[in-house]
Write a protein that binds this DNA or RNA. Sequence first.
DNA 1: ACGCCGCGTATTTTT
DNA 2: TACGCGGCGT
Length: 669
Amino acid sequence: MKLQHLNEPQRQAVMTVEDPCLVLAGAGSGKTRVITQKIAWLIRESGYRPEKIRAVTFTNKAAREMKQRAGELLGKQEARGLRISTFHTLGLNILQREHAHLGYRKGFSILDARDAEDCIAELQHKDNPEAELIKQTQWRISQWKNDFITPKQALADAENSLEQHQARVYLAYQEQLQACNAVDFDDLIMLPVLLFRQQPEVLDQWRERIHYLLVDEYQDTNASQYELIKLLCGMRQKLTVVGDDDQSIYAWRGARPENIRLLQQDFPNLKVIKLEQNYRSTSRILRVANRVIGNNPHLFDKKLWSAAGDGDFVRVLPCRNDQDEAQQVVVDIIGKHFQGTPWKHFAILYRGNHQSRLYEKLLREHSVPYQITGGTAFFERSEIKDLTAYLRIIANPEDDRALLRIINTPRREIGATTLKTLGEYAAWRHRNLGLVLHEHGLEQKLSRKAWINLQRFADWLEEKRRQAEEMDAMSLTRLLIDELAYEDWLRNTSSSQKQAESRMANVEELVSWIGNLQKQQEEPTLDRLVTQLTLMSILENSDDDKSSDSVQLMTFHAAKGLEFPHVYLVGFEEDSIPHFQCQDEEGIQEERRLAYVGITRAEQQLTISYAQTRQKYGEVIQCEPSRFIAEMPAEDLEGAEHCSDRLSPEEKKERGMNHLDNLKAMLAG
DNA sequence: ACGCCGCGTATTTTT
DNA sequence: TACGCGGCGT
């Protein structure tokens, strides 16, 4: 097989098959190309059957892209059976096969982060109604799960009353999940690991299924994900991981970039290959990026370089205030667009989602098409949660949380008193809510009216379960929407016509999503579709945005892995980046990596803007330019004079900084 | 059961 | 400023 279009280190990375391999892939160094070529190499040259190769990514989007590119390289025939998925989907696959070993029943549900939060809130409410604590407890439980600490251990190890309390909630939470035949996101990784540790013969079966493992964005793995990797590899050590410690920006979420170091310990034969040639950006942009990230400590020395020329200066735009900043950026984009640059070549990146507002407003006012990624996630919307809860309760009759969510949505006149009685009765019977709906003992405890309403609901639910056997998930969803008169209900509960329309559009999108999913799935049973759906965020659904020509708006985090010819990093101020709540040494380092990720998104031109004053919570505050600007090499910057001493408009003019003002005038005139 | 008011809070968020 | 939530009033 010819390894076309690969440089020497890339070639090495592809051909290193016998030993475990760590590829340190700098930004824009062609890591996806390496992974896909390596898969092709494994199949064509090393004799691996495609179904024995597993590639793992963090996002569905990355998995899709990799699948697509591997498919192009190999052709349909050769790629047949190749498995590329997210970590969580891998965990789900394992659980779906092995759930019985762990005490779960077929059709188990997955709680998303919000469900889990609600669940914890309820459990905690009993003895501690402090709202602040909920997120903290959820975070703690997640940490425990990542470190494989059982509730009992956590309780035993608790060092203070807070931890004791949290451990008690953890215990109750796990019991609740078990009882509902449900798992959370962390369980999808933790449970397979626990199972593999307890039952080596099951692990052996999985090692037989996966002969070669590739992991993308390795710097983002947490402790339990790494453990899963190690277990699956076993002695065979057929492993390639690709990552970049400089792009580790999820430590706050539990990612452990030090897993890169551990890899060297755990795999003494590890071959480390560095990809340092960047094919994305101009040399100037890379010099700026290198200088900034150079202020962080490093495990491995790595220096990105580019064969592209210097290119344009990196521009620094000081602005009087946030309005002015948005104005300058938008005007600049419009000006460039009319010189022939398509809208989609521009990206506006910021630290926090709220910073998009001004830009949205201005872009709308100027009729510039834009697309915004992020904000309230699709799957968190109430209409989506309602419908998926219906699907969940149909697929998994034990899913108490789903039942509670929809039993009176839309209104069925099943009120709080009825539910309380139902809950007490079910608890007394040690059975799930959904399984006692018809019981005679319950009838005794309810009023005639409540009982009738409840029976009507229970009968309807059973009818849907029967129908679910005979029809596909998409038709079932349509049937539900129809029978529930869900659109009417949305209309009645929405505050405005506009909101109602957008919610209905979301419902439509969900339906088409389910349609797509069942086409892709090998075994499109309802329960499999529902769990898969929970692992998706529909934000990434927008494959259609590639075709649409619009300015892209997103956070630095969301931009990881993407590239644009013209990038604007806006709000580049102290307390924004680095964020005011990340002031310790480690925090600053992660913020610096975040800045690095932002900088390295740019192909041709990078513009960094900051405001000197900004409206925050209704009041005007003073801002300082980010310390990261001062870290950049002055000779590659244009307009950086402003960092130390602020210039008056006259001085600005003197130094030829008024091109934006000219543009503005031009557009106004 | 619903709606309104006032208070408190304000990152990033792959699954 | 804005939004979401809890409490309270109808």
